[in-house]
Write a protein that binds this DNA or RNA. Structure first.
Lengths: 211, 211
DNA sequence: TGATTTATATACCGAACGGTACTAATATTA
DNA sequence: TAATATTAGTACCGTTCGGTATATAAATCA
């Protein structure tokens, strides 16, 4: 694993030969490789090429392939959590907040050197989830975390009279999350940005009882 | 590929040694193996074990691993198309028709010897879709085929005054499809049947303007 | 400057991969 | 029953897999 000595942390160089890579950047490039190919199909050579590191260095920094992937997933979840937190405004009207969420999601899902890749969790962890309980745990946690962020926003809207619905905040959140999941899948399937945006807008209208 | 001689087709035994396997059943078992592990992680040994066939026989019957997977996908799509066609009644009210669609989907998604596996396309083809254009084509076609089945039903409802909405049938269909996609992902993530059913019901209500 | 520490780089390991010759078995046909 | 056709089964092919032993390079510390 990547260990920072206190010396390095304080600005003084650590003892041995210095790294030629930035751990966070290397991990992000590894994530990109996993994102394209999936966990099983991404070979260690793909990953070292992406990271610009050789195998022993990569192993020394992040452990074996499985541990590296788990770390990749955690980094992605942290990014996604923050992106959603920023987008899901409590000051904008509910519909506008949801629009920001979907717009930001579409940005993430359609980026990628080899074309749109959707959501990293959905695109790679879902496949492994049946036979790998640890990956399933992270995948499920990722879905539920978004559920909870959305549920809090819907609960706020229901409590403040911004939205009237017989459907509870939890169920509204799961539907809203589902629409986002669907954007991820459609992006990976190659659907156009226009289709993604239209689907998101229809979802917003249904959820907010507009139109 | 599996070839049937005209003699066999007419009930007369073909010339050589007879098969000890049923091609359709073997393919279904291969599908189950792919469904659990994904395309890349399913080894040829996994597949032969599942099918009860040895490697040369499997190759002779269906071609190489990629061709076998494509055939698997096609068989699944045919099953799914028929299941949706049956469930999506034009005689029942729209909400009840959608309920049947989601109920049938949940049945398929939660079956599986190693736990719920979701949708075969979403659980396995989505991952490969970025780097494999042929798989992406089948994956996208699968999504769009369901879109069209649903769109036709929504268009029918709008035309016959069963549903009033400013949102077009196409967008309604993509949202309805998205909710089903989300059921597939949540099933694979291990969510309970109860959660899946509640999410589906909330989707039906939103789509049909109930509650 | 020599010892120590840490990272890089090469070369290699045994195992598993997808795929295939080759042989044996089992049926029809002539 | 001999010839032919088709399948089943074994054993093996070269390649790639994830992972590691070993040697070298580059820094600090004493």
């Amino acid at each position: 694993m990547v260990k920072k000595s206190s010396a390095h942390h304080l600005g003084r160089r650590p003892r041995g030969r210095p790294r030629t890579y930035d751990p966070g950047q290397a991990l992000a490039r590894v994530t990109a490789a996993f994102w394209d190919a999936g966990y099983s199909a991404a070979s260690l050579e793909d990953l070292t090429d992406a990271a610009g590191m050789n195998k022993p260095s990569l192993y020394g920094a992040f452990g074996n392939k499985h541990a590296l992937y788990m770390t990749s997933l955690e980094q992605y979840r942290a990014m996604g959590r923050e992106a959603m937190r920023e987008a899901l405004s409590y000051e904008l009207p509910l519909a506008d907040a949801l629009r920001r969420v979907y717009t930001r999601a579409i940005e993430i899902y359609t980026a990628g050197d080899h074309g749109a890749r959707g959501c990293f969790l959905i695109g790679t962890a879902a496949t492994e989830s049946v036979l790998d309980p640890k990956i399933r745990r992270v995948f499920a946690d990722g879905l539920h975390e978004l559920d909870e962020q959305l549920e809090a926003r819907f609960a706020h809207a229901l409590e403040h009279g911004e939205l009237k619905s017989e459907i509870g905040a939890g169920d509204l959140a799961r539907v809203a999350c589902g629409i986002m999941n669907s954007l991820a899948l459609r992006a990976r399937a190659g659907d156009s940005r226009q289709v993604l945006e239209a689907t998101a807008e229809a979802g917003v209208r249904l959820l907010c009882r507009l139109g």
